[in-house]
């Protein structure tokens, strides 16, 4: 459950606000599309939700916890519950697909656990990775090298990583921007299906308004930092 009320973000002194009085609620299992022209504040809104961008006014609550007050450990714990998916450049090429997928578990693993996994993953960990890859439709890529994946497969791996995070919400920033329309549609549908199936809140920025209308419960338009 995400509650955004009256949020304002200003990047520098004298700069116009990147977000101005934005109010928005997203319930568990609800799919919300975020549309708007370039520079309208979509990325800024998504990044303020997990505390990467500081807000100058208003409030953001995730599962009834106010984000602005969190620091250090508490902030990390919040981030484990908000899975971020960006454009396709956020996988680590030299790691295997399994390692990229299980990076989603880093938030709940201790440091020794994380290092041990790189050297000797357990059967249970591999099974979890396989389950996540099965959910995104590419179980056969379990043993592949990441740099051998296509653009669409990379996004599926990023979604699998998000699932491994056991999140309460998925925040996706233009996840299909660099894919061709047909592939993009598949990925959007996959995201919405998974969110409904697992009762996750989904906030996804998009440029394709027709996909937004077709697959999402609600479409929110940002223009110049305000909800239009």
């Amino acid at each position: 459950m995400i509650e955004i009320s009256g949020v304002r973000v200003v990047y520098g002194p004298g700069a116009p606000p990147a977000l101005d009085d934005v109010t928005l609620q997203i319930a568990a299992g609800e799919c919300v599309a975020l549309v708007g022209p370039s520079g309208s504040g979509k990325t800024t809104l998504l990044r303020s939700l997990n505390g990467t961008v500081a807000i100058a006014g208003g409030s953001i609550h995730v599962d009834n916890v106010e984000v602005a007050q969190l620091r250090g450990r508490a902030l990390r714990r919040l981030r484990t519950r908000l899975a971020m998916i960006a454009q396709q450049h956020d996988l680590v090429d030299r790691l295997t697909v399994v390692q990229n997928v299980m990076a989603g578990a880093l938030g709940r693993w201790s440091t020794p656990h994380a290092l041990r996994f790189l050297i000797a993953p357990t059967a249970a960990e591999l099974a979890e990775a396989r389950a996540a890859l099965t959910a995104v439709g590419i179980p056969e890529k379990l043993r592949s090298r990441t740099n051998e994946l296509s653009g669409g497969q990379r996004q599926r791996v990023a979604i699998a990583r998000a699932l491994v995070q056991h999140p309460t919400a998925i925040l996706a920033d233009e996840p299909i921007a660099s894919l061709d329309p047909e592939l993009g549609e598949q990925i959007v549908r996959l995201l919405c299906d998974l969110a409904r199936e697992r009762n996750l809140a989904l906030l996804c920025s998009l440029h394709q308004v027709e996909f937004a209308r077709r697959y999402f419960d609600r479409v929110v338009a940002l223009v110049g930092g305000r909800v239009a």
Binding site: A86, D90, L91, V92, A103, G107, A114, L118
Partner: peptide
């Protein structure tokens, strides 16, 4: 981008170094 993605999972510092 990949480092930001790892940090966004709530990972600790050393795991971000090892995985990223």
């Amino acid at each position: 981008a990949p480092i930001d993605a790892l940090a966004a999972t709530g990972a600790r510092r050393l795991p971000i170094v090892a995985f990223g």
